[in-house]
């Protein structure tokens, strides 16, 4: 199953909501340690593509393989798969009824991966990494957007996932807070985490991505290294898109 240590592979993935075809027969793979940025105009299907990877959306057609396992198989325990794939959302989705520490420790403890003490120690370590140790006992409502998103990243990392999915992690942030979140993501990337990032931050994509996918109308219209894609875009729509965002 390991062709060049592929971690995630999608085959002929299609997704429609009712009669609206959002993803149209996408086949793609992501290798272990690879950082892939997914860009494209809004409504192009890039978020849906990402959400199909951990089956928050069930593909209408096609299959998803993770770590050699066909996870679209109905006999597969989706929860077990998701433990291996952290996800960070545009709107953070922290649990407002839990403290920062509880947000981080809830999943590792409830899925039986750690005892409460182990999880607490892990949370302390992770919070220190993102310089938010003093917020451990606070509730999310008292945090800024940037702080919330850093906590959300740390919350996903507490499960020690093999891969992280980011769904427009900086789109809901005030401009001055984008940097602090991107820095955490860059650090994560430099440690070798496999990442799939849906983003509008072209600077980040250029700096961090091994590969950039341009998605439009439910298809991957063009892909390549950041230099290729941003420097010499071939696809007409991509040229159009880049001229608007750069």
């Amino acid at each position: 199953m390991t062709e060049d240590n592929v971690l995630l592979r999608v085959e002929h993935l299609s997704k429609s909501f009712g009669s609206n075809l959002v993803l149209d027969d996408i086949s793609e793979q992501i290798r272990t340690g690879e950082k892939v940025c997914i860009i494209g105009p809004s409504g192009s299907g890039k978020s849906t593509f990402l959400r199909c990877m951990n089956l928050l959306e069930r593909p209408t057609k096609g299959d998803v393989f993770f770590d050699g396992q066909k996870i679209t198989d109905l006999s597969v325990d989706v929860n077990k798969v998701r433990e291996q794939m952290g996800m960070v959302f545009q709107h953070f989705n922290l649990f407002p009824n839990k403290t920062v520490r509880q947000n981080i420790t809830l999943a590792p403890v409830r899925t039986g991966h750690m005892t409460q003490q182990e999880a607490d120690a892990e949370a302390d370590k992770l919070l220190a990494r993102v310089n938010l140790s003093e917020k451990a006992e606070d509730y999310p409502s008292s945090l800024s957007g940037g702080q919330k998103q850093r906590i959300a990243i740390v919350r996903a990392m507490a499960m020690h996932p093999k891969m992280m999915l980011f769904d427009e992690p900086t789109s809901a942030l005030d401009p001055e807070m984008v940097g602090e979140v991107l820095n955490v993501m860059k650090e994560l990337a430099s440690e070798g985490m496999t990442m799939a990032v849906v983003t509008h931050e072209m600077g980040f994509a250029r700096e961090v991505a091994d590969r950039v996918l341009f998605v439009d109308e439910g298809k991957i219209m063009e892909q390549g290294t950041p230099d290729e894609l941003f420097g010499h875009p071939k696809n007409r729509r991509l040229q159009d898109f880049l001229s608007k965002v750069l």
């Binding site: 291996q84 952290g86 959302f89 899925t111 959300a152 996903a156």
Partner: peptide
């Protein structure tokens, strides 16, 4: 619910805890 599920917790756990 999505955040809870994405962390690998089951429907019932997220319901009860979150």
């Amino acid at each position: 619910m999505e955040a809870g599920r994405s962390l690998g917790m089951g429907y019932g756990t997220v319901m009860k805890e979150v």
